[in-house]
């Protein structure tokens, strides 16, 4: 397991003896990888991310962070290494955008600790990267869905964790912000971060991603470079829709076949 930043071995999750969500999933992730996890609704993508974060205990199997059993680490130590953006986020109280992003510094200074100059700098940088500086003092309850999503992403960046596990980070973002976020994630991977994201838009990480995974029937059925995994044939089989692909300028686009 040396050299792997994050790995899991034999992960199985059963809701009941008949309902197997994940079946013997083993994966290894390195720093600097930008990985897309594809699968149908309910395939277990979010569940797998939660297990990798240590938020959900699998029925069997183990997760390792830099070779150490994840379950043996203190929560704050895990949070300094792994940041997580969930699919849904609770924003009940009208905290300012700045305060929400500041919460990302908790793994570094504790819950009760005061923010130092370094913390404030990281918070500003994270907001800047997500284009949130102009919204810094706005209550999060007044933001649109896409703006809230950017706030949660900025909080994950402020955490300064090497691993970023993002559950459908593009959802709710307008087209421009989707493109900007994909570029940002590619930059982060180039800086040495591990970026693992789930998505329903395979084109998104075809050009920028280094690796694509397909989760189907509780198992990883494909794992490799996007150009080999994100193909019309596989996507047609996965989504049950007949697709054709167009490759242009290093990008791949899909459209439904006319005959269908």
């Amino acid at each position: 397991m040396s050299g792997d930043f994050l790995s899991c071995q034999g992960i199985t999750l059963k809701r009941s003896p008949r309902s197997v969500v994940l079946n013997d999933v083993s994966l290894k992730f390195r720093r600097g990888e930008l990985i897309g996890l594809l699968g149908l609704n309910g395939a277990g993508k979010s569940t797998l991310l939660r297990i990798l974060m240590g938020l959900l205990k699998p029925t069997s199997g183990e997760v390792y962070l830099e070779g150490t059993l994840l379950s043996s680490l203190r929560p704050l130590d895990v949070a300094r290494h792994l940041a997580y953006v969930p699919q849904a986020h609770a924003m009940t109280f009208p905290y300012t955008v700045r305060r929400m992003v500041e919460l990302g510094r908790i793994p570094h200074h504790g819950v009760a600790g005061r923010l130092g100059a370094e913390d404030r700098l990281r918070v500003d940088q994270a907001m800047d990267r997500l284009g949130l500086l102009a919204l810094a003092e706005r209550p999060v309850t007044e933001l649109s869905g896409g703006e809230k999503q950017r706030v949660v992403l900025a909080r994950a960046l402020a955490q300064e964790a090497v691993g970023l596990l993002l559950d459908e980070p593009m959802s709710g973002l307008d087209y421009g912000h989707q493109l900007r976020l994909m570029s940002l994630l590619a930059e982060l991977a180039a800086e040495g971060h591990l970026v693992l994201l789930t998505s329903h838009r395979p084109e998104e990480f075809f050009s920028a991603g280094h690796r694509a995974l397909i989760l189907e029937e509780a198992q990883i059925v494909a794992d490799g470079p996007p150009e080999l995994i994100v193909t019309a044939e596989r996507m047609s089989r996965l989504y049950g829709v007949s697709l054709a692909q167009i490759d242009h300028a290093g990008k791949r686009f899909f459209h439904r076949e006319e005959s269908e």
Partner: peptide, 8 residues
């Protein structure tokens, strides 16, 4: 999940 992922 958000609170736990921040180490709390």
């Amino acid at each position: 999940d958000e609170a736990r992922s921040l180490g709390v």
